[in-house]
């Protein structure tokens, strides 16, 4: 044991201890770094404020003298009750209903397809699948989620409508299917929300304690009974939250529906005709290079504001439900 003896003391014993804070660059840097990081974090608040400011000044009430906002020219009543949307014609109508109709028909079709399939896949992954299969499937779902919206739009246009919808509905059932139609947009939208629903619902299902499942099996249940009558009800609010988030994504989805459903504002429930969603209108209006200051240009903000409020409402609801769910199991 010559260890310590062989080594000389690192430094001579210290004399005079000083613990007091003193100015040093290190201390100044600490404070500086903290301030910079706080700045970064508040940037997200600034973004929200900018969004709100933008909508309020461009859609609700203009603060720049000499200009007017959208709702200073078009009354809220007209906006909500008029059944026609035709900003580009001489006889301008600004009734949001056709756009809302297009948005909800397409998002509705998407949900009817995407939500059950996503949930069933989540149940399979969390209750039935072997860990290896799950590990293999997760990246595939991630790839599915990562495919850009434009690509889905193209897929709807060149595959879904000509090779899936037309053979079934037009040839077999004799229903006319437009090239641009709400159905194909809804179908690809359904595919697009599957990853969201699946991964969020799976998280909720897996958060259900094992004991609950075991209690179910101990009563002689089959896997079907346990999954559908024990686990799904226990994870219900988590699943609902995932549904809400997915629907809100479907409502805000832009390029796929813009390409697949076309740009024909129509107040109808026929999914085989062309329809226009709020998002598709915004893209279309920006294509024509509408000059700033015109009512057409301002209508972008009015539609954007409506969309923002709807998705925000759904997100807040989803987060609220999700937090309720977390409280139960954490």
């Amino acid at each position: 044991m010559s260890l310590a003896n062989a080594v000389s003391p690192l430094t001579p014993p210290k004399t005079g201890l000083r613990l007091q804070k003193q100015f040093s660059w290190a201390r100044a840097r600490e404070a500086g770094v903290r301030a910079v990081l706080l700045g970064c974090a508040s940037l997200s608040l600034l973004t929200t404020l900018a969004i709100v400011y933008m909508f309020l000044t461009e859609a609700v009430y203009s603060v720049t003298p000499g200009t007017t906002a959208f709702f200073q020219e078009v009354s809220l009543w007209n906006f909500l009750a008029d059944t026609e949307w035709s900003p580009q014609f001489a006889d301008k109508h600004f009734g949001i209903l056709p756009l809302l109709c297009g948005t909800f028909v397409i998002a509705g079709i998407g949900s009817l397809i995407g939500l059950p399939i996503g949930l069933a896949a989540a149940i399979y992954l969390s209750e039935y699948a072997k860990p290896k299969f799950r590990r293999m499937m997760k990246p595939v779902l991630e790839v599915l989620a990562g495919i850009p919206s434009v690509v889905y739009g193209y897929f709807a246009l060149v595959f879904v409508t000509p090779y899936a919808l037309r053979p079934i509905f037009q040839s077999l059932l004799g229903i006319d299917v437009d090239i641009f139609n709400a159905m194909s947009a809804g179908v690809v939208l359904g595919v697009m929300i599957i990853p969201t629903v699946c991964s969020l619902s799976e998280d909720a299902l897996r958060a259900v304690p094992r004991g609950l499942r075991e209690a179910g099996y101990a009563l002689g249940s089959t896997k079907y009974d346990v999954s559908l009558k024990v686990v799904v009800p226990a994870a219900f609010s988590g699943i609902v939250a995932s549904f809400l988030l997915a629907i809100s994504r479907a409502i805000g989805e832009t390029m796929a529906v813009c390409i697949a459903a076309g740009q024909m504002p129509r107040l109808s429930l026929n999914p085989f005709r062309s329809m226009e969603t709020m998002t598709a209108y915004m893209v279309g209006a920006s294509l024509g290079d509408t000059p700033a200051g015109t009512i057409e240009y301002k209508s972008l903000y009015a539609v954007g504001f409506t969309l923002f409020l709807i998705t925000l409402g759904m997100n807040i609801l989803a987060n609220w439900v999700m937090n309720r769910f977390r409280e139960v199991y954490e």
Binding site: L19, Q20, K21, A26
Partner: peptide
């Protein structure tokens, strides 16, 4: 007190304290 100095005094730098 560390060597007679209050370590919780407001002007004490925790970092230099922990080095000691």
């Amino acid at each position: 007190l560390l060597e007679g100095q209050e370590i919780y005094a407001p002007d004490v730098d925790v970092v230099s304290l922990r080095k000691r």
